[in-house]
C-alpha cells in the first residue's frame, strides 16, 4: 500500500526550543490516523509543516508524494485542512464561505454548485447553510468547516482537534462522516484529545515533548502494555515518560 504521508527525522526548532524532534513515520493511503499527545507536544507544529505552513529545520517529509520543501504549493492542491480554531468567515453565510473557498480552489461554477449541493446533503448542512457562520453552534460550524475543507475533494484531510468543544452527539456524527470519507479513499490525519475517538482510528501515534513515543493499532497497544483502556495507556505512557526525565 502506498503512503500518503511520509516523515523522516522531521525536526522543527524555534530558537533553543525543539518543538518537533526527529519524527519518523508513515501514514497509509485511505487510513484514519490518530495523532495523540498532550497540549504542547508538538502535534500542531507537525501538521503545519506537512501542510506547507511552516518550514522544517531539518529532516525529510512528503505528502501525496510531494516534497514538503519544494512542492508545498502542489501539496496544497491535494489536501484539506481544518485547524483548531474555527477559521471560516463569521460575517459571511455558510453558502458564501463555501463559494469563496470554491473559487480559491479554482472549481468551475458548475462543479462548485454540484459540490456544494452534494456536501450540503452528505454533511447535513441544508438547514443552516444560508445563515451567518458566526451565528451557528459549534457542532454546526465544524461541519461547515469540514465542508469547506472537502470542496476540492482532497486526497488527504488534516484535522487538528476538529471536535474540541463539540457535544458527544455531534462528535459521533462527525466521526461517522470521517469513516465514510475514509471508505471512499480519503486519508485522514487527525489529532484529538478524546480517547474514545482515538479508538476509532486504525492506527495512532503518541507524541510527547516533540518526540514520538509509541505508534500502532489502538487495540494492539492496549494489549502490549496490558492496559484496560486507551485512556489508561495514554496517561501511563506520558506520566512514565515525565518521571524518566
Amino acid at each position: 500500500m502506498e503512503n500518503a504521508v511520509v516523515m523522516d527525522r522531521l525536526t522543527k526548532r524555534f530558537g533553543d526550543f525543539t518543538a518537533v524532534d526527529e519524527i519518523s513515520m508513515q501514514v497509509k493511503k485511505g487510513e484514519i490516523f490518530g495523532f495523540l499527545g498532550a497540549n504542547g507536544a508538538g502535534k500542531t507544529t507537525v501538521i503545519r509543516m506537512l501542510c506547507g505552513l511552516l518550514l522544517p529545520t531539518s529532516g525529510k517529509g512528503s505528502v501525496s508524494g510531494f516534497d514538503i520543501y519544494r512542492d508545498s504549493e502542489k501539496i496544497k492542491q491535494s489536501i484539506g485542512y481544518m485547524s483548531q480554531k474555527f477559521s471560516l468567515y463569521k460575517d459571511l453565510t455558510g453558502q458564501e464561505n463555501l463559494r469563496f473557498y470554491g473559487s480559491v480552489y479554482q472549481l468551475s461554477k458548475g462543479d462548485l454548485r454540484r459540490r456544494i449541493d452534494s456536501l450540503a446533503e452528505s454533511l447535513d448542512l441544508r438547514e443552516f447553510i444560508d445563515r451567518l457562520a458566526g451565528s451557528l453552534p459549534v457542532g454546526w460550524r465544524q461541519r461547515l468547516a469540514l465542508a469547506a475543507a472537502l470542496l476540492h475533494s482532497p486526497q488527504i484531510l488534516f484535522l487538528d482537534e476538529p471536535t474540541a468543544g463539540v457535544d458527544p452527539v455531534f462528535r459521533r456524527r462527525f466521526w461517522e462522516i470521517l469513516y465514510r470519507l475514509a471508505e471512499e479513499g480519503t486519508t485522514i490525519f487527525v489529532t484529538t484529545h478524546y480517547m474514545d475517538e482515538a479508538e476509532f482510528c486504525q492506527r495512532i501515534s503518541i507524541m510527547h515533548r516533540g518526540r514520538l513515543i509509541e505508534m500502532g493499532n489502538p487495540q494492539e497497544l492496549i494489549r502490549k502494555y496490558q492496559q484496560i483502556t486507551l485512556q489508561d495507556l495514554f496517561v501511563n505512557l506520558i506520566s512514565g515518560k515525565s518521571t524518566d526525565e
Binding site: 505552513l53 496544497k76 485547524s83 477559521s87 471560516l88 468567515y89 463569521k90 480559491v104 480552489y105 469547506a148
Partner: peptide, 13 residues
C-alpha cells in the same frame, strides 16, 4: 488573528 489567513494559506492561492 481569527485564523482565516492560515486557512487561506493552505489553499493553492
Amino acid at each position: 488573528e481569527i485564523g482565516t489567513l492560515e486557512q487561506l494559506m493552505v489553499t493553492p492561492i
